[in-house]
C-alpha cells in the first residue's frame, strides 16, 4: 500500500488526510482556505477543484504540484449569456475509456473538456425536451452524479435533483429520462417523467446493468441499467438520506436521516446501513460510531470508498467529523474538527 489521501471539501477550504496504513491519519493544513470546495477530481498528475464563493462565483481551479499552488481554469464552465448561471461545480469525473472530463453543475447542466481546463456545455442535455419542467430542490437544481459504463463508452448515466436519472447510449448526443418505477416527489402535479428528486446514484462495480439510488423518500435499485426501478428499503429506520456508496467488493451503504423536514441522523443516532443482496434488506453496520445523541447531516457527496483489497469507506458530517471504516473493522473517527463537510474523495498512490 502506498499513501492514501482523503480529500475533504468543506465550506471553508480543502482539507487532506494522509495515511500510510489507513490506521494513523495525518491532517494537513487547509488548502484554498476561504473557498467552499464543492468537488474534487484528484488525479495522479493534477488535482481539479470545484470552488465556490458567495461573492466571487463558482469556478474550477487546478493544481499540478499537489496543492502547493492553484490556478483558475481560464475556461471554467459558463453558460452563454442570457441562459442559465453556473453557481456551483457539483461533480467532476474523468471517463476511464475516452479520457474526456465531465463536470456536473448547478443550475443543472453538464460540461465536458478534453484537458480539464477548457470546458464546453453539453447542449444535448441543456436543450432536453423536459428542460422547462426541471425545478430545484432544497439543495438547488443540481447535476450531482455522472456514471460511466465500464466497457461501453457510449453509455453514460446522470442524476439530478430534483429532476431524475438520465441515460445516454450514444456518448452524450442524446439523453433518455430513466425514472420508471420511481414515485414523484409531488404527487398532485400533472404526471411527468421528471420531477424525481434523486439524491445520489451508484453503479454496481461488477454488473453495469445494476444501479442503486438514494431518493428523496425511498431507496431504489435497477437490474436493467435504469430502465425500471424498484424499492429496496426493508430494514432501514428511514428512507430519507443523501449519500450512497458501494465498494468494489459489492458492499452498498447508506446513512439514513430522519425525514425531509428533519434532516438529521434518523432517530438521533448516527448509523450506517449496509445492503444484504440475498435478503434484499439492510442491516446496521455502525460498529464504532458514537451512538445516540447525534443530530448531524451527511451530504450527498460526503461518503466515498477506496479501491484497496480490503476497501475503506469514509464519510464526513456537516458538524465537521470524518469517519473511516477499513474492511470489516469498526468505524474510527479521524482527528480534527473541520468546517461543514461537502464532499470526500480518495487518491491512492
Amino acid at each position: 500500500m502506498g499513501t492514501i489521501r482523503l480529500f475533504v471539501g468543506t465550506e471553508k477550504g480543502l482539507f487532506i488526510y494522509s495515511s500510510p496504513d489507513r490506521q494513523i491519519w495525518n491532517l494537513e493544513e487547509p488548502l484554498l482556505p476561504g473557498w467552499e470546495v464543492s468537488s474534487v477530481l484528484p488525479l495522479k498528475d493534477k488535482w481539479l477543484l470545484g470552488t465556490t464563493h458567495y461573492v466571487y462565483g463558482a469556478t474550477i481551479r487546478q493544481s499540478t504540484d499537489e496543492g502547493k499552488t492553484f490556478t483558475q481554469c481560464e475556461a471554467s464552465p459558463v453558460y452563454p449569456e442570457g441562459s442559465f448561471t453556473v453557481n456551483r461545480i457539483w461533480q467532476m469525473v474523468k471517463h476511464p475509456l475516452t479520457d474526456k472530463y465531465y463536470a456536473g453543475v448547478a443550475e443543472a447542466g453538464l460540461f465536458q473538456s478534453d484537458d480539464g481546463e477548457n470546458w464546453e456545455e453539453v447542449k444535448s442535455l441543456s436543450d432536453h425536451e423536459t428542460r422547462s419542467l426541471w425545478q430545484p430542490g432544497k439543495g438547488g437544481l443540481c447535476l450531482h452524479t455522472i456514471l460511466f459504463h465500464p466497457s461501453n463508452p457510449e453509455r453514460i448515466w446522470l442524476a439530478m435533483s430534483a429532476v431524475g436519472a438520465f441515460r445516454s447510449d450514444d456518448g452524450g448526443k442524446s439523453w433518455q429520462v430513466k425514472t420508471k418505477g420511481i414515485d414523484p416527489v409531488i404527487t398532485d402535479e400533472k404526471p411527468s417523467e421528471v420531477g424525481r428528486c434523486v439524491h445520489k446514484m451508484v453503479l454496481h462495480p461488477k454488473n453495469p446493468d445494476k444501479l442503486f439510488l438514494q431518493y428523496h423518500h425511498g431507496v431504489y435499485a435497477s437490474d436493467d441499467a435504469g430502465d425500471n426501478w424498484y424499492k429496496i428499503e426493508e430494514g432501514l429506520p428511514s428512507n430519507f438520506g443523501f449519500p450512497m456508496a458501494m465498494t468494489h467488493d459489492e458492499k452498498l451503504f447508506v446513512i439514513p436521516l430522519e425525514s425531509d423536514g428533519l434532516r438529521f441522523s434518523a432517530e438521533g443516532e448516527l448509523r450506517v446501513f449496509q445492503f444484504d443482496p440475498s435478503s434484499k434488506s439492510w442491516f446496521d453496520s455502525s460498529e464504532g460510531l458514537e451512538g445516540r445523541g447525534n443530530y448531524d447531516t451527511i451530504l450527498r457527496d460526503a461518503m466515498t470508498v477506496d479501491t484497496q483489497a480490503s476497501p475503506g469507506v469514509y464519510f464526513g458530517t456537516t458538524g465537521g467529523d470524518v469517519y473511516a471504516r477499513i474492511g470489516d473493522d469498526p468505524w474510527q473517527r479521524l482527528p480534527g474538527s473541520l468546517p461543514r463537510i461537502s464532499m470526500l474523495r480518495v487518491l491512492e498512490s
Partner: peptide, 19 residues
C-alpha cells in the same frame, strides 16, 4: 489579469454584488 474578470464582474460587466 483577465482571470479576475469572472470574480469581480457580473455577466453585465458591472462590479459583482457585495464587492
Amino acid at each position: 489579469h483577465p482571470l479576475l474578470k469572472f470574480h469581480l464582474l457580473d455577466k453585465e460587466g458591472k462590479i459583482r454584488p457585495h464587492l
